[in-house]
Design a protein around this nucleic acid. Structure first.
Length: 396
RNA sequence: GGAGGGAUACCCAAGUGGCCAAAGGGAGCAGACUGUAAAUCUGCCGGCGUAAGCCUUCGGAGGUUCGAAUCCUCCUCCCUCCA
C-alpha cells in the first residue's frame, strides 16, 4: 500500500476500520529486510504502521499544527508528555474532560512519555530516591513528587494509548557507579509500574532500557527490563550529548537484546539519517523534536538537503521549497515567500514550516516501510546519505 | 530676523578629554538545535591580517592638548519656540 499526500484523505477511515478488528497491544511484524522490520502495532485508537515517526506534542499540541493538519500529512501517532500535562492543565482536569483525545480533538493514537527525561533535563532542583523523584515545576517553582505508580495514574488520566514507565536517565559522562544505580532503579521502577497499570488491554505500557554508555550496564538493563511483560521496549538515555559513534555502539549492541516480537522504540532520535540507520538495526518507533523545533527555527528538510530558509539566497527564489514534496507548503508557496514569512516572524511561518518538516519525516519513514517491503531498504537508506552529507557519520 | 536643541557606523541610539573602532537595539550575514523550560540560542557585523597589530572613521574645515566623538572657532544642514 502506498500512501502519498493525495491519498491521505482516506487514511483515517482505514485506521478506524482496522482498529476495530484488532486488540490493542497486538504487534505483528509483516515483513523484514535484513534487521529492518515492517509491522503494525494495534492501539485503542487504531493501528500504527511501523517503523513510525511520532511527532512530538509535548503539551497536548504539536506546536503550531491542528489535528487536521496532522491528519493531512498522514500522522499515525503523536507523543505527549506526562510531566507537562500533569503540571498544566493537570491530569485530573484532563480526566474530567474525557482524556487528552477528547480534550485536544486528536483521535489517533497517543504515546505519553513518562517525565523521566524532564526530570533529567530540568536537572536543577530535583532529588531522586528509590521511592521516586522530587522536582520543582519549571512553570512556578512549586514542588512535586513523581513515583512510578503516580506516573502510571497520571497517564491513565491522560488516557494515552501507550504509556511509558518512569525511568532515570543519566547525562553523558555520568560515571559507571551512578549509571548502574540509575539503571537498576529504573528496573525496580519498571516492576512497580507494571503492578500499577490499570487497563492492560486498553493502554499499552512500554519499559525503558537504560545503562548509559556502559555496554555491560546496557546488557544488564536490557535483560532485566525485557524479562518483564511489557507491550514494547524502549531504548532511553541516548542522544544526550554523546559522540555519534557511541550512540551506534550502544544501539547495535542493545537492539538485538530486545524481544524480536515486540515493538522497539528509540527515544528522542533523531535526524533523518539517524532514524534510517536505527531502522536498519531493527528499531520500530521514533520521536524527536527536531522536525518541529527546526521548523520553528528556520531549518527545513528537503529531498535535496537542509534548507536554511532565512538565507539571502532564497530572497527571490520562486521555486517550491521541495519540488519532490506534496505537502500543502510545497504545493502552494515559494521559497521567497517562506523566507519572507520567517524573517518577518509571521505566525504562518511556524505552521507552514512545521507542516513541511513533519511531512518530510513522515514521507521518509513511509518510504522506509515501502523499501523494507521491496527488500530494498539498504539502497533506500544509502540514497539519503547523499542528501544529508553533513550529517552522515560514515566517516566516523 | 531672534533664542534654543541637534548632526555618531546600513537604521535607531549611548558616549561629553585617554580604559573608544566607539555601549545597546534593529537590520544584515553565518551557525546550532536529537524522549521540547526553545516562535530559542550562539557567533560575525569599518578596512587589511591567522594573529599581534596597522590603517581609516563620530556633519565639514581649522584650532587647543602629550592625547579629541568629547573642548574652542567658523561653516553646512535639520528640529523646536519667539517675532
Amino acid at each position: 500500500m502506498e500512501l502519498n499526500a493525495t491519498q491521505c484523505q482516506t487514511h483515517k477511515p482505514e485506521i478506524a476500520k482496522a482498529g476495530a478488528d484488532m486488540q490493542a497491544g497486538t504487534f505483528r511484524i509483516e515483513e523484514t529486510d535484513g534487521r529492518a522490520r515492517r509491522g503494525v502495532l494495534h492501539t485503542d485508537h487504531g493501528p500504527v504502521q511501523t517503523p513510525v515517526f511520532m511527532p512530538v506534542g509535548t503539551a497536548g499540541s504539536v506546536k503550531s499544527l491542528s489535528p487536521q493538519d496532522l491528519e493531512d500529512i498522514g500522522t499515525e501517532i503523536i507523543l505527549g508528555n506526562t510531566y507537562h500535562l500533569y503540571l498544566r492543565p493537570g491530569d485530573e482536569l484532563l480526566a474530567r474532560q474525557g482524556g487528552l483525545h477528547a480534550f485536544s480533538s486528536w483521535q489517533g493514537p497517543i504515546l505519553t512519555d513518562s517525565g523521566g527525561f524532564q526530570v533529567f533535563s530540568l536537572s536543577a532542583l530535583r532529588r531522586v530516591s528509590d521511592d521516586g523523584v522530587a522536582f520543582s515545576s519549571h512553570i512556578d517553582g512549586s514542588r512535586h513528587f513523581f513515583t512510578p505508580e503516580g506516573v502510571i495514574r497520571i497517564q491513565e488520566n491522560i488516557g494515552s494509548d501507550i504509556m511509558m514507565v518512569l525511568d532515570e536517565c543519566v547525562a553523558y559522562g555520568t560515571d559507571f557507579e551512578r549509571t548502574r544505580i540509575a539503571a537498576e532503579r529504573t528496573t525496580r521502577w519498571a516492576e512497580r509500574s507494571l503492578q500499577a497499570r490499570p487497563h492492560p488491554t486498553r493502554q499499552l505500557l512500554f519499559g525503558i532500557v537504560q545503562g548509559g554508555f556502559y555496554p555491560e550496564l546496557r546488557e544488564q538493563s536490557a535483560r532485566e527490563i525485557c524479562d518483564l511483560p511489557f507491550d514494547g521496549y524502549a531504548i532511553g538515555g541516548l542522544s544526550v550529548g554523546e559522540p555519534k559513534h557511541l550512540l551506534w555502539e550502544i544501539l547495535e549492541s542493545t537492539t538485538p537484546l530486545l524481544p524480536r516480537e515486540q515493538p522497539r522504540y528509540l527515544m528522542g532520535v533523531g535526524k533523518p539519517l539517524d532514524i534510517l540507520r536505527a531502522i536498519g538495526e531493527g528499531v520500530d518507533m521514533f520521536d524527536c523534536v527536531l522536525p518541529t523545533r527546526n521548523a520553528r527555527n528556520g531549518t527545513l528538510y528537503t529531498s535535496t538537503g537542509k534548507v536554511t530558509i532565512k538565507q539571502a539566497r532564497y530572497r527571490e527564489d520562486t521555486s517550491p521549497l521541495d519540488p519532490q514534496c506534496s505537502c500543502y507548503t510545497c504545493r502552494t508557496f515559494s521559497r521567497a515567500y517562506l523566507r519572507h514569512l520567517y524573517i518577518s516572524r509571521e505566525l504562518l511561518a511556524y505552521r507552514l514550516n512545521t507542516l513541511h518538516n513533519l511531512a518530510f519525516y513522515l514521507d521518509l519513514i513511509r518510504g522506509a516501510r515501502e523499501a523494507i517491503s521491496r527488500g530494498e531498504f539498504q539502497d533506500y537508506a544509502a540514497a539519503y546519505e547523499a542528501v544529508f552529507p553533513e550529517e552522515s557519520d560514515a566517516i566516523e
